[in-house]
């Protein structure tokens, strides 16, 4: 067996090992990387930036820990931006695990920035029903969520003094890993109740949402770790995504090299086969 034939049948464990090293080693050296901003991410940043100080923003955590690596840095970046602008935040989830992930962020941020629960932020928790929950919020927030995540009635939480329905939110941010998610927020919150909707999705699903962005139904979108890194650069607070971009850089480079090697060996071996057939 020639070298090229061996390369063509490369054991996939070697590929796994190379990718593992390419991801792991750059993560050891925590070097934040500033990335070039794309208009689609800049638009969501500017949308939140342009709101008057103290606006109330809905943050829907529509994902579970499987997509944590991509979506949690986005959530952290948006929350930091809201804190910088002194916006009030209402968290909820269309996925059962979402509110707990939001709570994880706020457990860290609230003491650091001296935020008061019920005044500066609140966590409504999870409710089944997907798109119907969003639609119910349009009638009254208390319909699907009579209490917050801890069982406190909404009337006892000052943040809801002037916020009664979905229309009273200045902006909706949905961090979404699938169904139900950002598409449903666009369909109900934006299209029916005219509330601006932006958000973030995994890199693999981002291409599907460009049509909504172009039509103006989606204010802006963060796609994958890159989207989160762009947002971190915009708020000038490097976080997990900016550090992770180094690893993604190397992983992409390795995958490109694998594709080049795979195609080169295929072409050379194919040509050799054709030559031997002619002889």
């Amino acid at each position: 067996m020639t070298f090229l034939e061996k390369l063509d049948r490369l054991d996939r464990r070697i590929i796994f090992l190379i990718i593992g090293i390419a991801v792991f080693v750059p993560l050891l050296f925590r070097v934040p990387i500033k990335v070039v901003q794309s208009p689609i991410v800049q638009d969501i940043y500017e949308g939140i930036q342009a709101l008057p100080e103290g606006s109330t923003i809905m943050l829907s955590f529509d994902y579970d820990p499987s997509t944590l690596a991509e979506l949690q840095p986005m959530a952290e970046a948006v929350v930091k931006h809201c804190i910088q602008k002194k916006h009030r935040m209402v968290f909820m989830g269309l996925w059962p695990q979402g509110p707990k992930l939001a709570q994880g962020i706020m457990d860290e941020m609230a003491p650091r920035y001296n935020l008061q629960y019920g005044v500066d932020y609140v966590n409504l928790g999870y409710k089944t029903g997907g798109i119907v929950v969003i639609s119910s919020l349009g009638s009254s927030i208390a319909d699907p969520f009579p209490t917050d995540m801890n069982g406190t009635p909404l009337r006892e939480l000052p943040i809801f003094d002037n916020v009664k329905t979905l229309r009273d939110f200045a902006y909706v941010v949905s961090l979404s890993a699938g169904d139900p998610g950002i598409k449903h927020w666009v369909m109900i919150a934006k299209d029916r109740f005219k509330v601006p909707v932006g958000g973030g999705v995994t890199a693999v699903s981002a291409p599907a949402f460009y049509a909504y962005y172009n039509s103006g139904q989606l204010e802006g979108l963060m796609g994958g770790l890159r989207g989160a890194a762009e947002y971190e650069t915009l708020i000038d607070t490097p976080g997990t995504a900016s550090y992770g971009m180094n690893a993604q850089n190397w992983a992409h480079l390795m995958i490109i090299l694998f594709i080049i090697i795979g195609n080169t060996t295929m072409l050379v071996l194919k040509r050799r086969k054709e030559k031997s057939r002619v002889r």
């Binding site: 996939r12 590929i15 796994f16 990718i19 593992g20 390795m254 795979g262």
Partner: peptide
């Protein structure tokens, strides 16, 4: 990520 890398080498 590991399966994508392996697939990129074999199938792409």
């Amino acid at each position: 990520a590991f399966y994508v890398a392996s697939a990129s080498f074999r199938a792409f």
